[in-house]
């Protein structure tokens, strides 16, 4: 397959840096799948299903009842409660800190492993691949217990000041997320045309320059997808976190879990709604900043 692609412009859409003027695609009708009616309907229906529960959640966060069952009038009080709930804030900060750290380190580690598996033949490679798949294969609860046993047996210090007290959780999160990143990035790299890399080296670029200017731009969508996956996994993990966390390192899911047990769901709904709104705003802002860059590139 690579030979075929090689004769063609290998500049696929992700590789903006090398795509240059040749990478411009003819936007002709047949490929504009986004405009096909039936596809649009399908996507719209899927989004409806994805978001229906979220809208329910948002609506019920204004419900004047301790439960999410019947509408009993409009209120803001659960937002007030959530706002004044220091524990919730603390848990939220912890979760975000862990998720961001995890995403950065896991993406780097995962990308390195993906490159390794993509680029090299080496003895015992199938076994190594199996080794990398371990965290995906293991049931969460088993891994949670394993982490619990591990950190208590090696005597990992507890009661350290913030954010060092999050170290055990972050380490565990990185360990189980980076293989996910590796799989996604590797699937992306499977279509890379090695001749491009060789061409770059023939032209006198060093290994590092080739890496930064040829390989990384091609990897980017894989990196983004992998990073999003790592972030999602880390932010939402309950089981492994629960077993690695102490009383001072409560994360958002752990907090939510205990609040739901006490059935204070509207407050949790309110917090989740706020979280959605913040995420959406952050995305919009991030994209605003990216726009000028984009127009230049295309």
């Amino acid at each position: 397959m690579s030979e075929l692609a090689g004769t063609n412009k290998a500049a696929s859409p992700g590789g903006r840096a090398i795509a240059g003027p040749r990478g411009r695609h003819m936007t002709i009708g047949p490929l504009e799948y986004g405009r096909r009616f039936w596809l649009r309907c399908f996507v719209a229906a899927t989004f409806l299903l994805l978001y229906a529960p979220i809208f329910t959640l948002i609506i019920f966060s204004f419900n004047d009842s301790r439960r999410n069952i019947v509408w009993r009038g409009f209120t803001f009080k659960y937002y007030e409660k959530a706002w004044n709930n220091d524990g919730l804030f603390e848990a939220f900060t912890n979760s975000l800190t862990i998720a961001v750290l995890t995403t950065i380190i896991a993406t780097v580690l995962g990308a390195m492993v993906a490159l390794l598996l993509w680029r090299y033949r080496f003895p015992g490679k199938p076994a190594y691949e199996g080794f990398m798949a371990l965290p995906i294969v293991i049931p969460e609860i088993c891994m949670g217990v394993a982490m619990l046993a591990f950190f208590s047996r090696i005597g990992w210090p507890s009661g350290m000041p913030w954010p060092l007290n999050l170290s055990a959780i972050t380490i565990a999160h990185i360990a189980f997320t980076f293989p996910f990143v590796a799989i996604v990035v590797r699937a992306r790299m499977a279509g890379f045309n090695r001749e491009l890399e060789e061409a770059s080296k023939d032209l006198g670029a060093s290994e590092w320059q080739t890496f930064m200017n040829v390989i990384v731009p091609f990897m980017r969508p894989g990196l983004i997808a992998g990073a999003l996956l790592a972030f999602t996994l880390s932010l939402d993990d309950f089981v492994i976190t629960f077993f690695t966390a102490g009383p001072e390192t409560v994360t958002f899911p752990v907090k939510v879990y205990s609040m739901v047990r006490f059935s204070v769901t509207p407050e949790v709904n309110a917090a989740s709604t706020a979280l959605i709104v913040i995420t959406v705003l952050a995305t919009i802002v991030a994209m605003r900043f990216q726009t000028p860059d984009k127009t230049e590139a295309t």
């Binding site: 217990v145 619990l148 629960f242 009383p247 409560v250 879990y257 205990s258 047990r261």
Partner: peptide, 16 residues
């Protein structure tokens, strides 16, 4: 102090 888990989870954790 405000963390709540069920009996089983607590027991599993305290075991270690």
């Amino acid at each position: 102090m405000d963390l709540y888990a069920d009996n089983d989870e607590l027991f599993a954790k305290l075991k270690e």
